[in-house]
Amino acid sequence: MRNLTSKSGSLTPAFFRKEQTAAFLLLFPSILILGVFNIYPAFYSIVLSFFEWNGFSPDIPFVGIENYKTLFTNGVFYNSLLVTIIYSVVVTFGSLIIGLLVAVALDRDIKGKTLYRILYFLPVVTPTVASGVVWKYLFDPTQGIINTMLSYINIQGPAWLNDSAWALFSVSIVGIWKRIGFCMIIYLAALQGVSANLYEAARIDGATEFNILKSIKIPLLSPATLFLTITGFIDSFRIFDLVYVMTNGGPVDETDVLGLMLYRNGFEYFKLGYASSIAVGIFGILLILSFVQWKFTQGGEAY
């Protein structure tokens, strides 16, 4: 219906201009700041990726696509790419699903609701470095609480972060843990927009709790889900500090995510041109992934 209104409205030139002016005014502050502090530096990175620079020397030679050649012929890059993709998929969807369940469970009057919400949100406010350090202790093969608990039920736990087979899984668990509270909040906020009358009507029709979740809540939450999927991929594709603290890419290179590769080259080896080419690489992959998700859901508009 409303499409009809706006379309018929936009036929008159004056109204059309007014809408465009409104859009311009509303967008202006953000675009100005983002232009200067996000878009310009993004181009700076792209340009820098064709140079070789250590950030100190005044000598900055142009090297063409040399950095990209090094990147794409490098086994380290492909290993990191694979690790990052696995990590991102597991963390994005793992946290999304658990976050949704928790949000739905807490979106009602139950005893201790506020307390639960705080407890689930604590990981989000705990600084990443502190979380990483603490989880390292929890995962400790001999003294860690996880293996201690497993030993009560006669299971000999693995060495987690120090075990080639378990390291990436362990890091992903922490990634999910840190993100559940975030997903919960976004879903809780979005659920506030869903009218209560809808459920009531469904219940009167005899729908079960699960049916309501499946046929009413999930479709209505799809803008939030798109938001969480895209930001999930963006955040986890660039993950760095958590892994840096817990494994620094180890045991050998099983958890060596792209963010670590970027950090090492940019901030430890000071190969800024090469680091920029990695940043551009991550950017390109994310752009494609987001575009696919976007097209797939029509920007979350089709719910």
């Binding site: 993004a42 970027l262 950017f283």
Partner: peptide, 11 residues
Amino acid sequence: LGTMMISNYAI
């Protein structure tokens, strides 16, 4: 959205 994908360290 694309600018979110450039690593903070790069900018």
